[in-house]
C-alpha cells in the first residue's frame, strides 16, 4: 500500500493527525486539480475544503483493491470542484488562451504518469483524432461543459457531443 492508502486507513479509524499528514502531502497536487477546473483560487479552496471534509468522513469507503489512493483522492476533489462549477452555472472564465493548448496538446501528455496505467492511457489518447482527444481533456481536466468545448473548438454542440462519445468508446476498447 502507498503512504496515502495507509493514511486513509488511519483516517477511517478517526486519526485526525493522519488527515493533516495527508493534507500536507497531497494538497498542492489536489489544489492544482481543483484550480484546473475552477480557475479561481477562492472557488478551488472551497472545492478542496469540501473534498477534504468528505475524505475525513468517507475514508473508510476507500478500497485499496479497486485502485490507488492518490487516484481516489483526485476523484473526490474533482467531483467537489465539478459540483461547484455546476452550481455557478459553469460561469467560469474560459478565455484563457493557454487553456486549450495546455492539456490538449499531445506533447503535454508527457506529464502523464510513466506507470503502466498512465502509459496505456497515453498511448490510447494519442491514437484518437485530435479534436476527440481535446474534447475529452478539456472536459476531464478543465471541467468544461459541452457548450464551452463547442465554443473553444469552434464546432457545433451536437458534433462535440458525438465526438466525445465516440472518443470515449474508442478509449474503452483500446484500454480493454
Amino acid at each position: 500500500m502507498t503512504d496515502a492508502a495507509l493514511l486513509l486507513a488511519r483516517i477511517a479509524g478517526g486519526d485526525r493527525n493522519a488527515l493533516q499528514a495527508l493534507y500536507q502531502a497531497q494538497s498542492v497536487r489536489l489544489f492544482g486539480v481543483a484550480m484546473a477546473i475552477l480557475r479561481d483560487r477562492e472557488a478551488a479552496s472551497d472545492a478542496l475544503h469540501d473534498g477534504f471534509v468528505n475524505i475525513a468522513r468517507r475514508a473508510g469507503m476507500f478500497d485499496p483493491a479497486l485502485g490507488r489512493a492518490e487516484a481516489w483522492l483526485a476523484t473526490v476533489i474533482r467531483y467537489a470542484a465539478l459540483d461547484i462549477a455546476r452550481r455557478r452555472g459553469r460561469e467560469i472564465p474560459t478565455d484563457d488562451a493557454t487553456l486549450g493548448e495546455t492539456p490538449a496538446d499531445a506533447t503535454q501528455l508527457d506529464t502523464l504518469a510513466a506507470d503502466e496505467d498512465g502509459a496505456r492511457l497515453r498511448a490510447c489518447l494519442e491514437g484518437l483524432p485530435e479534436k476527440n482527444r481535446q474534447g475529452i481533456l478539456l472536459a476531464f481536466v478543465n471541467g468544461l461543459s459541452h457548450p464551452q468545448i463547442a465554443a473553444r473548438l469552434e464546432l457545433p454542440i451536437g458534433t462535440v457531443k458525438s465526438w466525445i462519445r465516440r472518443g470515449l468508446l474508442s478509449l474503452r476498447e483500446c484500454l480493454t
Binding site: 498542492v28 478542496l48 487516484a71 476523484t75 506529464t111 502523464l112 481533456l137
Partner: peptide, 18 residues
C-alpha cells in the same frame, strides 16, 4: 470509468493552496 481516466488528473498543474 474512474479507474480508466484517473491518470489524467496528473495533467493539472500543481499549485499551493492558500
Amino acid at each position: 470509468w474512474e479507474r480508466r481516466l484517473a491518470p489524467l488528473s496528473a495533467l493539472a498543474q500543481p499549485e499551493a493552496p492558500p
